[in-house]
Amino acid sequence: MSGNNTTASGTQFAAIDFSIDKQAVIVGAVLGVLINMSAMLVPVLNYVGGGVIAGFVAAYMVGGPRGWLHGVIAGTFAGIAGGTVVMFTGALIGLYTEPPTLLQELFGIISPVFNGAGVLEPLYIGLGVAAFILVDSLIGSAIGGLLRTLVDVLFRR
């Protein structure tokens, strides 16, 4: 974390710590992917979204502004994984030739925009899903980082 050291010559600000806690990023990203996959079976998870969970968990595990950074990284990984899975599964089972509501709300939003894009449609949809997950993770990581800071202030000495 950032900090300051008081010396005889004044206050020296230490360099901001940008080290990455790999465990937090991995846990956040894996949970994000898991939530995204499970949301196809458990519709209530669509109200939260894998990106929010990925960002929240990674950010909460680290805390503060550094936690926010972790949340975004976890969300990026979750987005790439989620987008890739959607792209391949959709292309393999021919979902892109079906009505866009087949994969519930997530596809309902994106699919009509890319209708008629031909062979590149799966790629565009994959990128669209990844972008949605990443944006979600921004929100999740902001909440997670703030909540962790609040918990630290209130309950940890």
Partner: peptide, 21 residues
């Protein structure tokens, strides 16, 4: 302590997710 509560909350939500599936 607060660490126990954080861990049990995370664990219970993860467990409930599996049970839901």
């Amino acid at each position: 302590d607060i660490g126990d509560i954080e861990a049990i909350l995370g664990g219970s939500l993860f467990g409930a997710l599996q049970a839901n599936v």
